[in-house]
Design a protein around this nucleic acid. Structure first.
Length: 201
DNA sequence: CTCTCGATTACCT
DNA sequence: GGTAATCGAGAGC
């Protein structure tokens, strides 16, 4: 497979979030290779986006969002969970795309062990779940996902037939923005989605 | 320094 | 459908 080049991430976060649907996230561990097809993402901006960690400027936690694009931004939340983003932007100072759900591909038995769950469908269907299934923690914050030898990369996949935009999940501000992107045919979305209410693009 | 609350999940009714 | 768990970031004093 081909690793997506840095130029892929030099666009608006909404474009990158849409384009990441159907791409493959690959995690290389000492004894295992884990991978999955991205089926759900969310775009986060900066001054244009009150839901973004970067909205109020740079802090210790979000500094990666202000650095080179194509970098993993991992943060810890709700006292239990890690979430992984890939930094992206064009005109703004900061930006990132949250990977919300993947369809597991390689290393499923190891993912089951890491998650302590046997059910295929609950392994990676949520940002906290997929981070746990791929053993992603703050140790991966700042990792370059465009480097072939990286412990974490994003690779090309088969083109997705359809991508739909919806409101983002779990936020209190910026709810009106349709910055969540899904492959509506996937069985591995973090939530059941009512297609009738969606904006198709 | 203290306090609030979160880009969530799992388990309950 | 509702909510407890859990703890660090960051905002406010």
């Amino acid at each position: 497979m081909v690793i997506l080049p840095r130029s892929f991430y030099k666009r608006s976060t909404t474009e990158v979030a849409r384009e990441l649907i159907g791409k493959v996230i690959v995690r290389r561990l000492k004894d295992h290779k884990l991978s999955g097809v991205i089926v759900e993402t969310e775009a986060y901006g900066q001054a244009d986006d009150p839901a973004s960690h970067a909205f109020r400027g740079m802090t210790k936690r979000n500094s990666v969002m202000f650095g080179e694009v194509g970098t993993a931004y991992v943060y810890f939340t709700y006292g239990n969970h890690h979430c992984i983003n890939i930094t992206a932007r064009n005109r703004l100072l900061a930006g990132a795309v949250l990977i919300r759900s993947i369809a597991p591909q390689e290393g499923i038995s190891e993912m089951k062990r890491l998650r302590a769950r046997d059910d295929h469908h609950v392994l990676t269907t949520g940002p906290g779940k997929l981070a746990q299934a791929m053993n992603i923690t703050c140790s991966q914050n700042g990792v370059d996902v465009t480097e072939p030898d990286s412990e974490l990369t994003i690779e090309d996949g088969s083109p997705c037939r359809m991508v739909i935009a919806t409101p983002r999940i779990g936020i209190s501000r910026g709810k009106e923005l349709q910055w969540r992107f899904i492959d509506p045919s996937s069985e591995f979305l973090s939530r059941k989605t009512r297609l009738a209410s969606l904006q198709v693009k």
